[in-house]
Design a protein around this nucleic acid. Sequence first.
DNA 1: TCCTTATGGACATATAATATCCTTAAAGGA
DNA 2: TCCTTTAAGGATATTATATGTCCATAAGGA
Lengths: 161, 161
Amino acid sequence: MQLKNQVEWALHCCSILAGLPDGRYLDTKSLAQLHGVPKEYLSKALQALAKAGLVLSTLGPSGGYRLARAASGITFWDVVSAIEGPGPAFVCTEIRRNNPCRPKSTCDAKACIVARVMWEAEDAWREKLRGMTIAKLVDQVVEEVPADLMEATAVWVGERS
Amino acid sequence: MQLKNQVEWALHCCSILAGLPDGRYLDTKSLAQLHGVPKEYLSKALQALAKAGLVLSTLGPSGGYRLARAASGITFWDVVSAIEGPGPAFVCTEIRRNNPCRPKSTCDAKACIVARVMWEAEDAWREKLRGMTIAKLVDQVVEEVPADLMEATAVWVGERS
DNA sequence: TCCTTATGGACATATAATATCCTTAAAGGA
DNA sequence: TCCTTTAAGGATATTATATGTCCATAAGGA
Ligand code: FES
Ligand code: FES
């Protein structure tokens, strides 16, 4: 069980897009170069973000992507669920119904206890992700990443947006 | 991203093994029939549990599996990590190092913030799973599953253990 | 008109999940 | 001792998913 590598890409892209000058767009090519990932495949991830309403896109020269709303309004869960899908990681195939001792009449009012526990644990995970926004991420990045690298990246992005 | 179906199988098997008469073993064939899953593949899951020290096995007639310790000492996380491996679901491929603006000298004292957040969320998930034991599961099952089905299953298992 | 870009579909490849088969060795019973 | 039962584990097959590439199309800007 492993998350797609696109999740890492998408979160890093959002953090870059959050620093974009107002109204500007950054294109897929630049985002791909910046992170050293294949442009065509990254494009799929960005399309997923667009479909989820997290980013806006525009065509033509000076086109590309930007965040669809304030970075403080986009959570990690928004991004992760856009890439991975919102469904649960644990899927119950109702094996309890296969018990040969089970009378046909048995009705399953509630979901299986095993499934409920697994889903509760996932909820805790989701809740943590919902508690973290791209804005908070950027704050942390500013705090931890060397100033010269931040500055150089900002310039590099500025030239291309 | 999805957990293996063996996770569901393994947890249900543990709940059955927890109800086994003292010192008895239940074989793979019975566990497979009880849950309606392929015996050979379920066997791999049980082997994983054995390797993790959660169950004991014995050969020959009247052989099979039983829990290696009290059901109260086996958590959901024990089972999940035995099947899925203990590694994180989010894997960081250090794409931050691919930034073309980055000086060679840059050192990464701490893990990337994105990764740290993702791993923190996973910790919350793990913690929930660690808080639930097979014993608690059995308690819940006894409470929720119809008495006649519980009884019939106990008899069925008793005949085969 | 021409260039740039996102979109989306088709396609190819790699990896992981799911499943089956078969051989081996150990345990127990006759 | 011989035979049956069973777990262990390796080999293999099948399917699904992840990863990655390619191309045709439409739209925006110069
Ligand atoms: S039947 Fe699916 S988790 Fe119990
Ligand atoms: S470099 Fe891997 S999560 Fe940031």
